[in-house]
Design a protein around this nucleic acid. Structure first.
Length: 488
DNA sequence: ATGTAC
């Protein structure tokens, strides 16, 4: 079955695979998958069905795309990229953004070496586990009034920095400067606010984590760009974390899926192959209202990562008895995985205004693109790719030729099996011990959650990153080795 | 991903 599906793919090149519009009735454009042959054989067959379903959506420009770490998700595959031409009836689709709106990665460096950190590693991880609440339903230390939370929805990370949770420079190192314009708190349900108001500064569960990592000297692939990104000393210690908008984004998504399902066919005549692809025209009242609500969730997520960064700086400061400034704890960047953003891109020789859905995909702007921080204008955008907790992670950079994928790349390893299967194959307690003997000290909020995230349940991060490089989506700068992990 | 079902 799987082989049959693979045979329906046209091999465009060693790294680009295509399902033509003739593959399925209703496809408006081809579906393209960026992957090596090995990775494409590992993909669950649902990816091929899902990405070809996406190619049927109104207004889709050029082609529906799936990144090398693609796996099946709600409606769209995780790893899916779809750009909708808004002047040509383009839609907005919550399934193309994901339930965890603006789930993303943040990377912060230190001026500490592994030799300096090693004696304190367990204390660091134990304290981080206490100060950054993890797990389903976890709540944070911030107690916000409803008016204050509404300000967070509009201001994102700006609200945090205004209240002392972070440095001003953190904002310029976050996509959209940590505050996307056009977020409307009135487009959000009271239930979403109830769920989100106590969750700022919390990690969550699933594949969300906080990791202490080391840069081995042999893992620097572009020394010049690495230095621009703040990787400057041998065996430098960095902190990377992955989390999103928690129950708030989940509720916003649930609310608008219901709205879209109600009006999609009756009011707008949109017929889809899968209910999970519920969509509305971007220019419709429903589409605009969801767009404004989604932006509040983007801001919630930026704020969440901002407060977590503040807590990380506090913990390091406490353990090493020096200020975070003195420890050189500067941000490298903050990337969003689950978004839809208005961007201008070249399609068939014309600059078009597109709503670019990236679901489990990282924006990877090449040098000179608008929206990049001044300091990265000549290098291109830092791309933070988190691998599984056992294997390692990468820092990459956007490339000038990235326009092929609307400047999008992979976001992580990508699962190779279900969470249920991983729970059958591994036990959390045993895995924790094994990881410790392999040099990674891990604390978790849930043993079964830890088992689900075993390295063996994911594709090899080195293969995924190699594929993004071969496909011209982004370029390697540094590889990180994990030494400590707080797992949701 | 998620007060893992309203």
């Amino acid at each position: 079955m799987k082989v049959a599906v693979v045979h329906a793919l046209t091999k465009v090149s060693d790294i680009v695979w295509e399902l033509p519009p003739s593959y399925k009735e209703g496809m408006r454009v081809p579906a393209r998958i960026f992957a090596t042959e090995r990775l494409i054989r590992e993909m669950d067959e649902a990816v091929f069905e899902q990405i070809s379903n996406v190619a049927t959506l109104p207004g889709i420009a050029r082609c529906a795309m799936c990144m090398p770490d693609g796996h099946s998700g709600y409606g769209f595959p995780i790893g899916g990229v779809a750009a909708m031409d808004i002047a040509r009836g383009g839609v907005i689709s919550p399934g193309g953004i994901g339930f965890d709106i603006n789930c993303g990665m943040r990377l912060v460096v230190t001026n500490l070496t592994w030799e300096e950190v090693q004696p304190h590693l367990k204390r660091l991880v134990d304290l981080l586990y206490l100060r950054v609440p993890a797990g389903v339903g976890s709540t944070g230390f911030l107690r916000l009034s409803r008016p204050e939370f509404r300000a967070v929805l509009e201001e994102g990370a700006h609200w945090c920095v205004r209240h002392g949770y972070g440095w001003h420079e953190d904002l310029e190192l976050t996509e959209e400067n940590g505050r996307i314009e056009g977020a409307d708190p009135d487009a959000v349900s009271e239930r979403a606010i109830d769920r989100g108001i106590k969750q700022i500064g919390t990690l969550g569960s699933g594949n969300h984590y906080l990791e202490i990592q080391v840069v081995r000297p042999e893992h620097i692939y572009d020394r010049k760009v690495a230095e621009k990104f703040g990787i400057t000393i041998p065996n430098q210690v960095v902190v990377m974390f992955h989390c999103g908008s928690r129950g708030f984004g989940h509720q916003v998504t649930s609310d608008y899926l219901q709205v879209f399902l109600r009006v999609m066919e009756s009011k707008y005549g949109i017929r889809i192959l899968d209910r999970e692809l519920a969509s509305a025209p971007f220019d419709s009242p429903e589409g605009q209202r969801y767009f404004a609500a989604m932006k509040t969730a983007l801001n919630v997520s930026f704020a969440n990562r901002q407060v977590i960064l503040h807590r990380i700086r506090e913990v390091f400061s406490e353990v090493f008895g020096r200020s975070a400034e003195d420890l050189g704890m500067h941000m490298v960047y903050d990337v969003a995985h689950n978004t839809a953003k208005l961007e201008r891109h070249l399609v068939d020789g014309q600059q078009r205004q597109l709503l670019v859905h990236r679901k489990g995909s990282t924006r990877a702007f090449g040098p000179g693109l608008p929206g990049l921080p001044e300091r990265y204008r000549d290098t291109g955008q830092p791309v933070i790719i988190g691998g599984s907790m056992e294997t390692g992670s990468y820092l990459l950079v956007g490339v000038p030729g990235g326009g092929e994928s609307f400047f999008s790349t992979a976001h992580g390893s990508g699962r190779t099996m279900s969470r249920a299967r991983a729970r059958r194959l591994w036990r959390g307690q045993t895995l924790q011990q094994e990881m410790e003997t392999h040099g990674v000290y891990v604390r978790t909020a849930s043993w079964s959650g830890l088992a689900e995230e075993a390295g063996g349940a994911y594709k090899k991060i080195d293969d995924v990153v190699e594929a993004t490089e071969l496909a011209g989506l982004s370029r390697r700068v540094v590889r990180f080795t994990p030494v400590g992990n707080v797992k949701g």
